[in-house]
Amino acid sequence: MDETGKELVLALYDYQEKSPREVTMKKGDILTLLNSTNKDSWKVEVKITVNGKTYERQGFVPAAYVKKL
């Protein structure tokens, strides 16, 4: 869990989004878990840094590609 009590997951593999509802992640990324009720895909939040500014983006990733921490 992070400092706000949200559950975290670790990306086990790289994943490139295939639709606007998904998010891209790299192996080793730590993501905030938002919903894990679907056995196939979990909703997560990723933090992306562009030019020194951090943005948050929500979307789905394959459940088999992440592990709860």
Score class of each variant (00 low, 15 high):
65 Y>H: 05
9 V>I: 07
3 E>P: 14
52 G>F: 04
44 V>M: 01
42 W>C: 04
60 F>I: 05
54 T>W: 07
4 T>E: 12
4 T>R: 12
28 G>H: 04
7 E>Y: 12
1 M>S: 12
55 Y>K: 06
33 L>Q: 00
16 Q>W: 11
7 E>V: 14
20 P>Q: 09
12 L>P: 02
23 V>Y: 03
41 S>L: 15
46 V>T: 10
9 V>H: 03
31 L>S: 02
47 K>Q: 11
17 E>W: 07
57 R>V: 08
26 K>Q: 08
20 P>C: 11
63 A>Y: 03
61 V>T: 00
23 V>Q: 01
67 K>I: 14
2 D>W: 14
36 S>N: 07
14 D>W: 06
28 G>I: 04
36 S>W: 09
27 K>I: 05
64 A>I: 11
39 K>P: 15
22 E>A: 07
38 N>L: 09
5 G>Q: 13
16 Q>H: 12
33 L>R: 01
22 E>Q: 06
5 G>H: 14
66 V>L: 15
26 K>M: 08
38 N>H: 09
38 N>F: 08
1 M>H: 14
24 T>Y: 03
50 V>H: 09
40 D>P: 02
11 A>I: 05
5 G>S: 12
34 L>M: 06
50 V>Q: 09
36 S>P: 05
41 S>I: 14
42 W>Y: 05
56 E>Q: 14
43 K>D: 01
57 R>L: 08
40 D>C: 14
7 E>H: 11
13 Y>Q: 12
32 T>N: 06
8 L>H: 09
11 A>M: 03
42 W>M: 01
24 T>P: 07
65 Y>Q: 04
65 Y>K: 06
48 I>P: 00
11 A>N: 02
36 S>Q: 09
5 G>K: 14
49 T>A: 07
45 E>F: 07
41 S>H: 15
62 P>N: 05
57 R>T: 05
44 V>T: 00
37 T>C: 14
18 K>E: 08
12 L>D: 01
43 K>Q: 11
12 L>N: 01
54 T>I: 12
53 K>D: 08
18 K>A: 10
7 E>P: 10
36 S>H: 08
34 L>Y: 03
17 E>C: 13
11 A>Q: 01
48 I>K: 07
18 K>V: 08
69 L>S: 02
13 Y>G: 04
30 I>N: 01
5 G>Y: 13
3 E>Y: 13
45 E>M: 15
23 V>W: 05
18 K>Y: 04
51 N>S: 08
19 S>M: 06
6 K>M: 11
67 K>W: 07
2 D>M: 14
63 A>E: 02
29 D>G: 03
10 L>P: 00
69 L>G: 01
60 F>E: 04
14 D>P: 04
45 E>A: 15
21 R>L: 14
1 M>Y: 12
37 T>E: 14
47 K>C: 12
8 L>N: 04
9 V>E: 01
16 Q>L: 12
44 V>G: 00
24 T>S: 15
